[in-house]
């Protein structure tokens, strides 16, 4: 099959890949670029395990066709940590508050939380719940996840 060539910005670096047109952004990230932090759960836009930021907004990468990534700016969980491998305050808080159980939903949760904190630095509990309403956690640790996001918001405020 013919392939298409795509160029986009991934975690602040420009990448070019050549892929079959019927691949999803999720497949490109995991299989072509070997960034396996982005997970596949349902594959139909319902669980949020595949969440990435596309032009600053959360999206399900399982619902994005390869060619749609052309020219966009994508951030995956691998792009969240600070230079030198230092964890982002959100990641620290997830660990501190016990918000990670099996960890499968965590990358998506962190990205949804990051998108929230970028536009609202002092979210209340309802706003946090709304922001992660498209991310399912099978281990059902929602309470700790909400607490972790609150704690991270606090840390970022103090900075």
């Amino acid at each position: 099959m013919e392939t298409i060539e795509l160029t986009f910005t991934l975690n602040q670096r420009e990448v070019t890949v050549s892929v079959a047109p019927n691949r999803r952004l999720l497949d490109i990230l995991r299989e072509e670029l070997h960034l396996t932090g982005t997970k596949e759960g349902c594959g139909i836009g319902e669980c949020g395990a595949c969440t990435v930021l596309l032009n600053g907004r959360t999206v399900n990468s399982c619902l994005i066709l390869a060619g749609q990534a052309q020219g966009s700016e994508i951030i995956t969980i691998e792009g969240v940590e600070k230079a030198g491998g230092k964890l982002h305050p959100l990641q620290e808080s997830f660990l501190e508050k016990g918000a990670v159980q099996c960890g499968f939903c965590t990358p998506g949760m962190v990205l949804s939380a990051l998108a929230l904190l970028r536009k609202n630095s002092t979210p209340n509990v309802d706003e946090i719940r709304e922001a992660i309403s498209g991310n399912l956690c099978r281990c059902t640790g929602y309470k700790q996840i909400v607490e972790a996001i609150q704690a991270a918001a606090g840390k970022l405020q103090r900075k």
Binding site: G45, T51, V59, L63, I64, S133, G134
Partner: peptide, 9 residues
């Protein structure tokens, strides 16, 4: 509609 991710697309 849907979830935040769905509304963004």
């Amino acid at each position: 509609v849907g979830s935040p991710q769905i509304r963004n697309r």
